[in-house]
């Protein structure tokens, strides 16, 4: 049996009187690659924020397993939605990555910086953008910035990598590379990712969690075809009670056909 990384039990979350998430149960095992799909406003990002601890559940609990440092709990690498609002920020790619190395309790220890720098460069190397280390972040493309943010999460040596719509600002060719990269990372760490891109999800993720106020988890699949079925079946009430309506036309036609059957 694989180790449990995170466990969510009977969790509810309300925001200004509206229930965003209801009775959520989810177990994240070591080595999982879970894609979280669902409509806008369905609570995907909220779920991620609850897991990384940015929000506190109204009811229920998020339990992070002990892992390497039982007292501290599992180290989570958090990759937020692309932040474009602070583009001209005066920092290089390496500076941003090294932000992940910051430990508030040790803010006066300056002698660590050389090792931090080395780790930062290694993380950029892993993401394939080491040559941009000294570029200002405003001079990078959207895809490169996204990789910088993942490198920033990687230097925290996480066991669980949590990504919120990482491919939103990457073109389709870049996306393939990007998912392959995630697949590589998945060999060493557990990944939980919010995505809109269902086709890629079916090709690269190992399981799918449909979130629309409630959560329905489609366990690990043998083939990607099966997973694709699960993704699409989310719009059909019979096989997935969460009933996620898909926004783009192709899938909504598919679901209409399925509904007519």
């Amino acid at each position: 049996m694989r180790n449990i990384v995170a466990e969510i039990n009977d969790l509810c979350f309300s925001y200004s009187g509206k229930e965003v998430l209801h009775n959520i149960d989810l177990v994240v095992n070591q080595g999982d690659f879970i894609a979280v799909v669902g409509p806008n406003g369905g609570g995907k990002t909220t779920l991620l924020k609850l897991i990384v601890g940015l929000l506190k559940p109204t009811r229920g609990k998020v339990r992070l397993a002990g892992g390497k440092a039982p007292k501290k709990g599992v180290e989570i690498g958090y990759v937020p939605q692309q932040i474009d609002h602070n583009l001209s920020f005066p920092a290089t790619a390496l500076d941003v990555v090294m932000m992940g190395k910051h430990v508030p309790e040790q803010r006066l220890m300056f002698n660590r910086s050389r090792k931090d720098r080395k780790d930062g460069l290694a993380a950029l190397e892993k993401m394939g953008i080491a040559e941009f280390a000294d570029r200002k972040i405003s001079d990078l493309s959207g895809g490169q910035r996204q990789r910088v943010l993942i490198a920033r999460a990687l230097v925290t040596e996480p066991e669980l990598l949590v990504l919120d719509e990482p491919t939103a600002s990457i073109d389709s060719r870049g996306q393939t590379q990007f998912y392959q990269l995630l697949q590589g990372l998945n060999k060493e760490l557990t990944i939980l990712m919010v995505s809109h891109d269902l086709l890629s999800v079916s090709a690269y993720a190992k399981s799918v969690a449909c979130v629309n106020r409630r959560l329905h988890y489609h366990q690990a699949f043998e083939t990607s075809g099966e997973l694709l079925d699960a993704v699409y079946s989310c719009s059909v009430y019979d096989s997935c009670p969460v009933t996620v309506p898909f926004p783009d036309s192709r899938t909504s036609e598919l679901s209409k056909e399925a509904a007519n059957d």
């Binding site: 602070n86 932000m99 992940g100 508030p104 925290t156």
Partner: peptide
């Protein structure tokens, strides 16, 4: 000077700073 790194991280990305334990 004392809080420089904390301020830097908070200014760039408040949520990430929170996750890292920056007050």
């Amino acid at each position: 000077f004392y809080f420089f790194n904390d301020l830097l991280i908070m200014s760039y990305d408040e949520e990430f700073a929170l996750v890292r334990g920056v007050p």
